[in-house]
Simulated assay, not measured.
Amino acid sequence: MLLSFDVFGTLINVRESSYDAFRSILGESGRPDVDVRAFWEYWEERNISHYWETYRPYKEICALSLGEAFAHFDIPGDPSAISHYFDAFSRFQLYPDVLSTLETLSRRHRLAIVSNIDNDLLAVTPLWREFDLVCTAEKARGYKPDGTLFRYLLEHAGVPLNQILHSGQSQFTDMVGGKPLGLTIAWINRRNIQLAPTVPKPDFIFPDIASLIPLIERMA
């Protein structure tokens, strides 16, 4: 089997890893009082909305979305402050279950990552292991929600569709983009949130990736 994984939010604890960068952005913009979590979530929603548009690099989308978040929160900020976020990538933290789980799974299966990201940002992200297949938005010239990035995965997987299990945390990118293509998807619901009624249902739901091991042993 080929086991593919979303990166940011599934393997990397992206919210906790990037809040300090966004606190710096808000502080430099004169609004340290703004709830960083609410600001981050609005910014991420705008990112996802732009994934549906004609391809542009992730870094450009992030800056565009930051400008929109500033406007939404009535903050006179400079979108170039998004550089604080990019600078934080080398300090991002894996979830505690990631390395041991991937090591176990890699003994019998090939591993892939599928990420809405630019190649250079992924390159500085401390994943601490190699993967058999790396699929990025930059390589695919498109993102997950409209299926472009998942079609890239399917084209390069080297196995039939029914031999791929994709695991991801984002219902609005992983499920929305992958399920219409027939992918088997495990929703890694680390934040224990509700599935939106408009989102295709995943095949499996787990609180972490360690919980995948018994499932994959049965499927193999």
Rank of each mutant, 00 (worst) to 15 (best):
S106Q: 14
R46A: 09
A63P: 07
T101W: 15
C62K: 00
A69F: 10
S80P: 01
D74Q: 13
S65N: 04
H50C: 03
E68G: 03
S83P: 00
S100G: 11
V36C: 10
Y42K: 08
P79C: 05
P76D: 12
D35F: 09
W43R: 07
A69G: 01
H50L: 14
S90Q: 15
F73T: 02
R37V: 15
Y55H: 02
W40Y: 15
L99P: 14
T101H: 14
P76V: 04
E68D: 09
R46F: 03
A63Y: 02
D78G: 02
K59G: 07
A88G: 09
E44I: 02
C62L: 06
C62N: 08
E44R: 13
S90M: 10
S106I: 05
F89Q: 02
P76I: 02
Q93K: 11
S83L: 04
W43M: 07
L99V: 10
R56M: 09
E45Y: 13
A81I: 00
L94M: 13
A69L: 07
D74N: 15
R56H: 04
Q93G: 04
A63H: 07
I61G: 01
R37N: 15
S49H: 07
T104K: 15
H72P: 10
A38G: 14
D74A: 14
F92V: 02
F70Q: 04
R46C: 10
Y42N: 05
S49V: 15
A69S: 09
S90P: 02
Y85Q: 03
T101Q: 11
E41K: 11
V36G: 06
Y95N: 07
I82M: 12
P76M: 02
L66V: 09
L99H: 14
L102E: 12
A88L: 01
